[in-house]
Computed example of a mutant assay.
Amino acid sequence: MRARIEMELEDTPGQLVKVLKPVSRYGANIQNVVHKREEMTPLGRVPVTVIFEVKQEGRLQKILDEVKEAGAKITRVGEEEAAVRAVVLLVGDIIGTDVRDSLDRINSIKGAKVSDLNLAIGESDEEHSARVIIWATDKEKLQSAVLKLKEIAEEKNLLVIDPMG
């Protein structure tokens, strides 16, 4: 099961580590952490979102309990039991062809989202490679997102290496 926890943390050193420890302790695999320190809440707290996979449903509640004990104010919890993902590699002038446009076009597909993009910049201004991770609520939406990425890549003269997972 894929879970998403949105929370608020005190703006003091070590708070993020405290709330991530239970996720690790119960064998969950962290997919993404968004720590928005520049967007403090009205109470002066830091909004944080953690997305992770946990294999046993009972462990999610234990994680939530320990995250609260660590001092986090949980504002929202979501579960995506049927989430699927694909990992795709792109090669070419990714930056010069407006990576934001590419991401926005993929993210416009309802039920699919680029959750991670790791960019490696080569020796020239036009040599880049990127690992793109796309999550979707079902296989059909994932396939639509991957096809959209391939369409964009063809339009922008990028090489696509098909899904690896």
Rank of each mutant, 00 (worst) to 15 (best):
G92V: 01
V87T: 13
E38C: 08
A86P: 00
L90E: 00
N118A: 14
D116G: 12
E140C: 04
V84P: 01
R37V: 12
K36G: 03
S115Q: 10
D98R: 04
E6F: 08
V34Q: 13
K150Y: 03
V88W: 02
A112H: 04
D104K: 11
L119R: 10
I134Q: 03
K55T: 14
M40R: 15
T97C: 02
E57V: 12
G27W: 06
K55N: 14
G44T: 09
K36D: 09
I95T: 15
K139T: 12
S24A: 14
A82T: 14
P42A: 15
V50C: 05
I30W: 13
A82R: 14
P22D: 09
R100H: 03
L16M: 08
N29Q: 05
K110P: 04
S124W: 07
Y26H: 15
I109E: 04
A136T: 08
E154S: 12
Y26T: 12
I5M: 12
E123R: 12
R4Y: 09
Q15Y: 05
T41K: 09
D101W: 08
Q61A: 11
S144P: 08
V48K: 01
L149D: 02
L90K: 00
D116V: 10
R76D: 12
G58I: 09
A136P: 07
K68R: 15
R59G: 06
V91Y: 05
K113Y: 08
V34G: 12
G122H: 04
A112L: 08
I134T: 05
D116H: 14
E151M: 13
M1S: 11
V88D: 01
E38Y: 10
E53M: 10
A70Y: 04
L90Y: 00
D65M: 09
Q31P: 07
G111D: 06
V23G: 03
A153W: 01
A28Y: 03
Y26M: 10
Q15G: 03
G96V: 08
M7P: 03
Q56M: 13
A3F: 03
D98L: 06
K73G: 09
I133A: 11
